[in-house]
């Protein structure tokens, strides 16, 4: 076979295989996982830079569930994304659109590529001063000026950023304050989660944390409530009342959720160490021991003692009275 024939044969083989590959890959139906794809485009509101597809957090999971629900009911991508961005504060699109203030993100790399190509072509034609005339400084004046201007710009930019970042940023903190003044009942759990996440460092956030935790607690969602109570309980800046509420709730959840009587009493004892007279703490402690360890007599004693307190809140009083009745009623099976 002559060289020429071999060349023609090679070209033919390459052409045929290329066409075959193109056909094979282009007829491949799109099997891409839409749920996953949408997930990678949304930033998880309570995490640091992770998308909801990649974050193990409860909130991200909930959002992913929502996505897969919408996908299976045939809602278009953009609509799902809009819904997520609208209903979750702090959720951000990780796929910046090629418009508005993110247009530059898409344009700049293309410009960089074009400038690079232009520079290479220009350099090909004008290879610059050679070693012979390199010592003549006059030639580089233009370059010097361009370099200087670029430097000044870079410097100004960096200084401006630094100055801006160095100022404490009141914006985020103000967000929390605004919400504090609002009636929390109108704020969604997700919003509260996001605000709390954004203001972790702010000691005043404990109030909102507790409110949110109470909400989870009331709805029986111990798992979501737990971390918030825990943060408050461990926070040295929390007020005594906040810490007591958190510790007592943690204690009750330890008993009610996991049946851990010992942990429960230990936690409540910590609350009692802060304020030995706390009626709620004493009541819950007695109730845990009654229901968890069968100490009916001791519970009756505590309940009766608590009821002697004239300042006891009516709601608590009714609850204790009801419990006392059951406890006194023969068997003493706790409700």
């Amino acid at each position: 076979m002559s060289e020429r024939t071999r060349n023609i044969a090679s070209v033919a083989v390459i052409a045929v295989m290329s066409v075959a590959l193109l056909l094979l890959t282009s007829t491949q139906p799109a099997t891409s996982d839409r749920v996953q794809q949408i997930g990678t485009r949304i930033k998880c509101p309570v995490c640091q830079g992770e998308s909801i597809a990649n974050s193990p957090s409860q909130m991200a999971e909930d959002m992913m569930d929502l996505v897969s629900e919408r996908v299976s009911s045939g809602v278009p991508d953009q609509q799902i994304i809009d819904e997520l961005l609208g209903s979750y504060t702090g959720a951000v699109l990780l796929d910046p659109p090629a418009s508005g203030n993110t247009l530059v993100l898409w344009v700049a790399p293309v410009v960089a590529l074009a400038v690079g190509i232009a520079m290479i072509l220009w350099w090909r034609r004008h290879p610059g001063p050679s070693a012979d005339d390199a010592t003549a400084p006059g030639k580089s004046r233009t370059r010097l000026v361009i370099g200087g201007v670029a430097l000044v710009l870079a410097f100004a930019g960096i200084v401006a950023v630094a100055a801006n970042s160095l100022q404490d940023r009141p914006a985020a903190a103000a967000g929390a304050a605004d919400i504090d003044e609002q009636d929390l009942s109108e704020v969604s759990n997700e919003t509260m989660e996001a605000v709390i996440a954004a203001n972790v460092e702010d000691p005043q956030i404990n109030g909102m944390r507790l409110a949110l935790a109470e909400r989870y607690f009331d709805s029986g969602d111990y798992r979501s409530a737990f971390p918030h109570y825990l943060v408050v309980a461990e926070d040295p800046n929390a007020t005594g009342a906040e810490a007591i509420t958190a510790l007592v709730r943690l204690g009750w959840m330890a008993y009610d959720g996991n049946g851990e009587v010992e942990t429960a009493t230990r936690l409540i004892d910590e609350a009692l160490a802060i304020d030995p007279g706390s009626a709620v703490a004493r009541y819950v402690r007695a109730r845990v021991l009654w229901c968890g360890a069968g100490e009916t007599d001791q519970a009756i004693e505590t309940f009766e003692e608590l009821l002697t307190d004239p300042e006891l809140a009516t709601e608590t009083r009714t609850q204790i009275e009801a419990d006392l009745e059951i406890a006194n009623d023969g068997g003493g099976e706790c409700p």
């Binding site: 485009r41 930033k43 830079g49 796929d95 910046p96 993100l105 950023v161």
Partner: peptide, 17 residues
């Protein structure tokens, strides 16, 4: 970071970009 520092606007740039 620059955009947030200058304008306070938050944009996300992640995997898809």
């Amino acid at each position: 970071l620059l955009l947030e520092a200058f304008t306070g606007t938050q944009v996300g740039v992640g995997e898809p970009f």
